[in-house]
Amino acid sequence: MYGILELINFAHGDVFMIGGMIAASFVISVFNLGPYPSIGMLTLAVVVSLAVAMTACALLNATIERIGYRPLRGAPRLVPLITAIGFSYILQNIAFIWKGPRPVSLPPTLPSGSAFTIGTCPKCASYQWSQLFVLIITIPVLIGLVWLVRYTKRGKAMRATAQDKDAAAMMGIDVNRTISFTFIIAGALAGAAGVIFAFYETTIQYNSGFTLGLIAFTAAVLGGIGNLQGAVLGGLMIGFIQDYNEGLGWAAPGSAFTHSIVFGILILTLVFRPQGLLGEQTPEGG
């Protein structure tokens, strides 16, 4: 999405958070799941909350775009950036009114055992069911995204709009609709991510999204904006650095400075290699 509008959507992390909140509501209120429900119930809950959260977040993101960004498309760059911050705060406060200040806790619904193990078992590397669950949802969604962007007419329109809005408009592409469509897709993805987060982490708070959004942005910048492989690599590196910093006692400053380290990486990347590790793929260079 950054590619198409050249706008950092600060509200994106908060849309993600709303998705997680919707999943949490479904698990707690609608399905009333206890710890470790049967596979059938779990699948039903996941599918329903995914469907609802993705739809809701897609609509939410499209509404934000319609109200906050489209009327300002001719304005200086600063302006939509400021409305993005404003929307981020509004969403956080909506969640705050909805769910209160404390984190919402879910029961651990995902099966807890290992899906499979490598090696013999006091020293084995085990692969948890909950981790497999993340992959089961993520991989089809990503494949769908790649297919959408690469092989459909809409995807072609999106890429054309990202490269040059004026030229795209001259080629008969409805730029406004394409941008709205991009926001819908992005919102749906954020909703799906929020659902996965809620099921996997089993706790979500009204301000979870903002920091996560920033960390995700750091990962994207580290890997190279607009570069899908780069984003994955950046995400892995940031995750690894965070875990290393928080998990190990020696040679690491400890969890207190995790954010400082992540933002330090962001700043160093932007200063010394603004195109990211794997190179930038936006039409306009950094």
Partner: peptide, 20 residues
């Protein structure tokens, strides 16, 4: 007062839209 940040957010959006 609990939603003060949301009120600032709304102010930011409204000012930018109607009276930049």
């Amino acid at each position: 007062p609990l939603v003060s940040t949301g009120i600032y957010g709304a102010i930011l959006v409204l000012v930018m839209l109607f009276r930049p």
